[in-house]
Design a protein around this nucleic acid. Sequence first.
DNA 1: AAATGTGATCTAGATCACATTT
DNA 2: AAATGTGATCTAGATCACATTT
Lengths: 228, 228
Amino acid sequence: MNQSNENILDSLSLPFESVLLPDERDKLYSSTNKVEYSKRDIIIKQSARVSEIPLILSGLVKISREMRRGKNVILRIAQPGSYLGLSSIFGSDVYEYSVFALENVTVRFIDIETFSWLIKKNGLFGMEVVKQISADNIFNINRLSSLLYKQLPGRVADIILYFSEDIFKSETFSIPLTRQELAELAGTTKESLIRTLSEFKHDKIIDMNRNSFKVNSMHIIKTLSRLG
Amino acid sequence: MNQSNENILDSLSLPFESVLLPDERDKLYSSTNKVEYSKRDIIIKQSARVSEIPLILSGLVKISREMRRGKNVILRIAQPGSYLGLSSIFGSDVYEYSVFALENVTVRFIDIETFSWLIKKNGLFGMEVVKQISADNIFNINRLSSLLYKQLPGRVADIILYFSEDIFKSETFSIPLTRQELAELAGTTKESLIRTLSEFKHDKIIDMNRNSFKVNSMHIIKTLSRLG
DNA sequence: AAATGTGATCTAGATCACATTT
DNA sequence: AAATGTGATCTAGATCACATTT
């Protein structure tokens, strides 16, 4: 299953390639190379000089900002099919966050020079990049400002919604993160995250067993998320 | 002074126009119109359908996200010379935040259709837009994640640094915001903001008189910012 | 042994209720 | 009267110190 899944995703076309001319498309493909990672491997390291654009072909990754030793904020969980680190590449000269494999992950790396050349040469491609970075920016503003003003139950409801609606598109799912990582996604400590999840379970809002979750009352989760 | 200042800035070229051909430049200019605002006026309203790109020609504005009735986060203070709301325009179909005039402000509005057409037609223009949105994104990630994990003295030191280094480029400055707004910039309440500023004053780190500030020890402010 | 979980305690900053200043 | 500021009190969630589970 894992393999066939990887094969399907490996044959993914590069995002935005539909707006490219055949020779542009060939040039873009020829500037890429593919790497396999195992669970917990680091794919890109915050503060390293930017050199390539990673595109996840299969597997989930976490995008994490190291605030200081041992203190991290997980910005988002990324799925196959979108370019990562675009805003670091064009708005900085170092990666502004780290990317880690949460499971076995295949990554295609794209050369920055070729990518930049394409933005300048093909305006439709440039427009797609503009849209992608804009959507990333709005996602970040939304998530981080919610973390900033919502109380813990609202933030934990948010991450349950995030996995259920955005990542797994199901009310039953298994989260490939430790409790510590879930806490970094909710902007809290592991103890507080654990207590809040336990309360949700006690109140029958969710079922939870290790990393398996089931949302029993999506309505209550959404209310908690909304009220913050 | 105010008037001559406005005249200088009014003659600002549009950002990125240097990469445009003469006819592109003319088309861009012809799609704009200019509006004057007074202190406290709203320039763009969160959740309104996006229609134009505002470019501040003179004066300072606050970019503010309304989280719920009466609960706001100020994302940043914007100065003359950069396009606002780009990521809302290309990543959403409504403005993701409001923009208010902090003093008398002149704004040139640019038609979105013309702007989009230029991104697609002229790749160099597209690349400039990509760079601007990327830099905005990194700024937001930096600021919001700092608000998320730093303690209050570090956050207040951050906003003092922000005004001193980014906005006014001086150790003496007058902040055109109420204490409530400063609190929204620091992610706290007005009472806590006032107390923290009073402590800084008591400890002789800053001088403060109404809205006039002077940084006495930039070193301590930077240390507080760094230690968070 | 590393991750998960629990109970006791602490504390930064929010909230509340006013007084003072502009 | 709206903005600024102060003091008293409260509380959400952090921290600490372990026990339990995988």
